[in-house]
């Protein structure tokens, strides 16, 4: 099944607070301009609201919060990533905001380096590995872990 691996090899890179992250492109449904978010009361800070994606209601998640970054509003290059995920055994659409969407790159699993134990600012449980591309560091996210609902609710 070479095809599958090749698909898996493709990743969408985006930046958050100057850092480049990547998620496998298979999870990406589409990329849209920022839309107004409806706040959900008493919601988890990771999923603070809801968003209307072409007639479907998708939860809006805040990756910055999960990765321990400072909260920030949308900027000129901000984009909303609509992801097709399976969360808690349910397939669902999830929307998240990225500061900018960069590109689609090929990342070979074999090229992945393990996350260095030291000197990483982000919680390692959400990271799958690090890849180098044209001298820049790309952090590949562990989608399942990253988008899992907060359990200690």
């Amino acid at each position: 099944m070479t095809e599958t691996s090749e698909i898996e090899g493709m990743a969408l890179t985006f930046s958050l607070q100057g850092e480049t992250f990547a998620i496998p492109v298979t999870y990406v449904d589409e990329i849209i301009d920022p839309l107004p978010v409806t706040r959900a009361p008493n919601a988890d800070a990771f999923a603070p609201g809801l968003i209307n994606v072409r007639g479907a209601i998708a939860p809006f998640v805040d990756l910055r919060h999960r990765l321990g970054m400072k909260p920030a509003g949308p900027c000129a290059t901000s984009r909303v990533l609509v992801l097709d995920l399976v969360v808690g055994g349910e397939s669902t659409k999830v929307a998240m905001m990225a500061d900018a969407v960069d590109d689609i790159t090929e990342t070979n699993l074999s090229d992945l380096e393990p996350v260095p134990e030291l000197g990483v600012r982000w919680p390692t449980e959400y990271l799958k590995g690090v890849a180098k591309k044209d001298g820049a560091l790309i952090i590949l996210l562990d989608v399942e872990a990253t988008f899992a609902p907060t359990t200690s609710h």
Binding site: A40, N42, A47, L50, N52, I57, P59, G88, V94, P149
Partner: peptide
Amino acid sequence: SIYHRGIEGLSGSTILGDGSV
């Protein structure tokens, strides 16, 4: 969605005429 299902007092969501949720 699974993220908000646990919130007490909410039973669902809907889309309003202006497209907001």
